[in-house]
Amino acid sequence: MSAALLIEQVLNGLQLGVMLFVMAAGLTLIFGVMGLINLAHGSLYMVGAFACAAVAAATGSFWLGLAASLAAAAITGAIVEIVVIRRLYSRDHLDQVLATFALILIFSEGTRWLFGSFPLYLDVPPILSGAVPLPGGGAYSLYRLAIIGAGILVAAGLFLLIGRTRLGIRIRAGEADREMIAALGVDIGRLYTMVFALGAALAGFAGALVGTIQSVQVGMGEPVLILAFVVIVIGGIGSIKGAFIGALLVGITDTLGRFLLPIAFGTVMNASDATAVGSALASMLIYILMAVVLVVRPGGLYGTAT
């Protein structure tokens, strides 16, 4: 195992981690402020990816597609919030899970109906194609590096938004005491719609960026959604900082587990058994991580009590 290969895997883990953060940030904000579990967050990710693919195919520009993905996901999010989600804030978690499960069915089948079952493909923009040499030999995709950069920028932007702006103050106040900020004259309905649209836009952004590496297809959102849930549960639901740490932890654990575990088992058993045991264990690793975190700290790393 060479150092370059290890660096490449660590970078892959970081790339997965920052994208999970962009997904999880919206999810955890929506939960923190509105107390809502949104299973349909993965659908917004898919909406972003499809919008990007469709616009990029029509105009030939990835950047227009990226802008379209943000806009499409934000607008879809706002509409969904106004039509459906708004009625769910006062309901129990079971109703929220089911209603947003229903939204997944509606979005998935609706998208299949519009775009068909065949995956769409997005090309990496020319300026970001190519590779960057790694220290110790080997090379790494420039586009993936750009994703890591974009994710870190989004994280920095979110921390500034939450910590330094008026909207951020209202969001934090909303987490602490809804009735009070409504009494102070903040239009709580509008605030909720904005938070939901912001979360949706982030999900759409992640969808467009990841859709370029993978394929854009119906059902792409749910595996990411479940990973994002693992992230926010590890980090503590409602905490942006927790989501960031949790996302990096999950990204790195998952990627390095898949890379290192088969090699580690290879030292004690034959190669095909080691691959089977190693990859089976690696695919369960992040869930084991989550279980361990919850057993030690039932509220997540940065969460308050359950």
Binding site: H93, V97, A291, V295
Partner: peptide, 30 residues
């Protein structure tokens, strides 16, 4: 393990355990 938590955490951790079993079944070739 799951009943140590409640509310949303319970929903999520039961989901995570099911995913764990799912991925085990997918990647276990026997």
């Amino acid at each position: 393990l799951s009943l140590r938590t409640s509310g949303v955490y319970f929903i999520m951790i039961t989901l995570a355990f099911a995913q764990m079993v799912f991925y085990f079944a997918v990647s276990w070739p026997a």
